[in-house]
């Protein structure tokens, strides 16, 4: 039982130094701890150093800057959800953030933690990807930006290198007549990990025809997956039932799920279609209501 060190640096530079100095694999970043502490508790990980990033101002705020909503990586979702700019601009992302765990979990859980934990079932990741969000990473070489779509490389693994951590998420403000939606399936109404998640963003022209769309599924493959075929089925249509149906079929076809106690392969495939259809309809309705 080695002893563990707990540090709570106040600056990005200090955090980078602590992470860089630690032997490879021995340090962990702590945001809300709702994944990290559970993993420590069940013995899956046993870090020698915990770097709590919540005292670093850059990881905390939520504000519009340079045409994007900048969300601090460690900001808890309960606070994020109350930011007026979130719900107004990104109802789908707000929806996804509000789904994580319970009110208690939301008092801690961050979007940064949801992304960096790299679970295939993370609820906000598909929602971030359909919005074209970028991840701002700080490291020994300075900062860099990576699309959220490329951030997760497999279950539990990310593009973060030694000494690096996620500072913030940059979500470009939506174009006119654009909107997003996120739906997930869980057996209960709350307190479950997604069996399937589907995020959709759409842009409509003045006549109601879809000019741009993105569709991303969660929990049906080792990482969240983008389904361009589903988006293609939506683009150029008026998002009528036939187009929605085709998008759903494309979602089913793109799934590469596993059987586990939360759902069977067959079930996940079917539900991916249902949720994609419903999420696309919801996004379309929202977009139509915006000018």
């Amino acid at each position: 039982m080695e002893s563990m060190h707990y540090e709570s640096p106040a600056t990005v530079a200090e955090a980078v130094r602590l992470l860089s100095d630690a032997p490879p694999g021995s340090a962990r970043v702590l945001a809300g701890g709702t994944d990290l502490l559970v993993q420590m508790r069940i013995g899956r990980i046993d870090p020698a150093l915990i770097v709590d990033v919540k005292r670093i101002p850059e990881t905390r705020g939520v504000a519009v800057r340079d045409g994007a909503l900048v969300i601090g990586a460690s900001l808890e979702t309960m606070t994020l959800r109350r930011a007026p700019d979130l719900e107004k601009n990104f109802p789908g992302l707000a929806e996804a953030a509000a789904l994580i765990g319970s009110d208690q979990i939301q008092g801690r859980a961050s979007l940064g933690g949801n992304l960096c934990n790299a679970s295939p079932a993370a609820d906000t990741v598909p929602a971030l990807i359909v919005l074209g969000a970028q991840a701002e990473i700080a490291g020994p070489e300075g900062t860099r930006r990576v699309p959220v779509a490329e951030f997760v490389t497999g279950p539990g693994s990310t593009v973060l290198g030694r000494g690096e951590f996620l500072v913030s998420l940059h979500v470009p403000l939506p174009a006119p007549r654009s909107a997003d939606a996120y739906l997930r399936l869980i057996p209960r109404t709350e307190m479950d990990i997604a069996v399937v998640g589907s995020a959709v963003s759409v842009t409509l022209d003045a006549g109601g025809t879809c000019t741009a769309a993105r569709v991303v599924l969660g929990a049906v493959a080792p990482t969240a997956i983008e389904v361009p075929e589903a988006a293609a089925a939506l683009i150029g249509s008026t998002l009528d039932d036939a187009a929605l149906g085709r998008a759903g079929q494309a979602a089913t076809a793109a799934c590469n799920p596993i059987n586990d106690m939360r759902g069977t392969v067959e079930y996940r495939r079917k539900v991916a279609a249902v949720l994609t259809r419903r999420a696309a309809a919801k996004a379309a309705e929202r977009a139509a209501g915006r000018n």
């Binding site: 057996p187 209960r188 109404t189 709350e190 479950d192 990990i193 106690m261």
Partner: peptide, 23 residues
Amino acid sequence: VYDEKGVLQNPGFLDYRMPVASD
């Protein structure tokens, strides 16, 4: 839920799904 080795797969409240208030 047991796996094929007879090991319990859901020994926790997250996956042993008792009704919550909203159910």
